[in-house]
Computed example of a mutant assay.
Amino acid sequence: MRVLIVGTGAIGGFYGALLARAGAEVAVVCRSDYEVVKSCGIRIQSPLGQWTFRPQAVYRRAGEVSVSPDYVVVCTKVLPQIDRAALIREAVGERTAIVLIQNGVEIENELAAAFPNRELISGLAFVCVSRTAPGQIRHQAYGGLKFGVFPSGISPRVEALCQAFERAGVKAEATSDIVAARWGKCVWNAAFNPLSVLSGGLTTDWLLTQEGLIRAVMAEVCAIAAALGHPLPEDVIEQNIASTRRMPPYQTSMLLDFEAGRPLETEAILGNAVRAAQRAGVSVPHLESLYALMKLRELAAQSRL
């Protein structure tokens, strides 16, 4: 299995390292950490062990790849200013499957339109992991994955990808309704990511002191999913609350990006959800408030630059 990881931050570095552990040939496209990763690899600290992931090749851009991979795995942030299709186009061959391990809802259409004749595998990571320094990744908890063909179905390539991750020691599930799975993950993301920023930097354990608000946001996400024809399990909110209580105090990815002055995935996580609700005629006052407050928070941060 030949894999190219595009976006070698916390998610890309961690899951690329796991695929390499499973025996895949893993190369990476690395921008900000290029020199460190090329010379020293990526150091992983995890309950699964501590090791250094040394990619088969390290590139500055996908166009440097000489042989098209079996899978191009996109792990960049989903931001309006990032043209994901352009980032990977030169590496995508006739038999390349495109894999997204990214946050947000309704994020696949851009890639589906750009590569109509390629298999598009949408994926979700349920993990507490962060990049602590150039070439340094800390995995704290969880790590499970879900994959499915977009817009629906399970293919042999999805199954092979899941099997590779299973060999590396993490649970990887194939699902025929990856769109529902995305809304399922948004139940957590839409609540905890923006609240971690708006609260001034609180970790998940402190955010749970406002459980009523969190549950209200989660219920609105469930209502959108149901209106779009992807109803979520009745216990999805209870499961998310319980799993958050079990995890160590965690700074969300959005909070880490905010504190580092990086762009935020506000549109992918909140904006897309609010727009979907408007199309479906679903009332989501809590989501709309969080979205507006996050846009104001971003404006305030930009005004200080």
Rank of each mutant, 00 (worst) to 15 (best):
R131I: 03
V284Y: 13
E166H: 09
I214P: 10
T76Q: 08
I224R: 13
D83M: 08
G13F: 03
G104L: 10
K185Y: 05
S68L: 01
N240D: 08
V187C: 11
W51D: 02
L213T: 14
P134H: 07
V105N: 02
I121H: 03
T266R: 11
R21T: 03
A114S: 13
P80Y: 05
G13H: 04
A227S: 15
L290R: 10
S253K: 11
I107Y: 06
E173Q: 12
W188S: 10
W183L: 04
C75H: 04
S283V: 14
S46Y: 12
S66R: 13
A216N: 10
Q251P: 04
Q302S: 13
K38T: 09
E159I: 09
M247A: 11
E211A: 07
V28F: 05
C222M: 11
R157K: 15
C40K: 15
A226Q: 15
V197R: 05
E64R: 04
G169L: 00
E64A: 11
E265Q: 07
A276N: 04
S196K: 06
C186K: 00
M1P: 12
L255N: 08
P80W: 10
A226C: 03
Q302A: 12
I237G: 11
L195P: 09
I137G: 10
A141E: 12
I107R: 11
S155Q: 10
Q136Y: 06
A280Y: 06
S199R: 09
A125C: 15
A300K: 12
V158W: 11
I98C: 11
T203V: 14
V92P: 02
Q163S: 15
W188T: 13
Q239K: 14
Q45M: 04
S243V: 14
A223T: 06
A85H: 08
P116R: 05
G41C: 09
K171D: 11
Q81M: 09
W206N: 09
N189I: 05
V3A: 10
F53S: 12
C30D: 00
L256F: 01
L120E: 06
T8F: 03
C75Q: 01
F165K: 07
P233Y: 07
A112T: 00
F258A: 15
Y71H: 05
S152M: 02
A180K: 10
L120Q: 06
R304S: 05
F165T: 00
A112V: 09
V36Y: 01
S196N: 04
A24K: 04
K77A: 01
R95A: 06
S32D: 07
R279S: 14
L4R: 00
A273W: 08
G13P: 04
E25V: 13
G153C: 08
E288W: 09
G261H: 03
I5R: 00
V149W: 07
P231Y: 03
V3W: 08
L270R: 14
Q50S: 14
A225D: 00
T266C: 08
A242M: 11
A273E: 01
Y59F: 15
P248Q: 07
A27E: 14
I214D: 10
W188Q: 06
L207E: 04
A125T: 13
L232E: 12
F150Y: 15
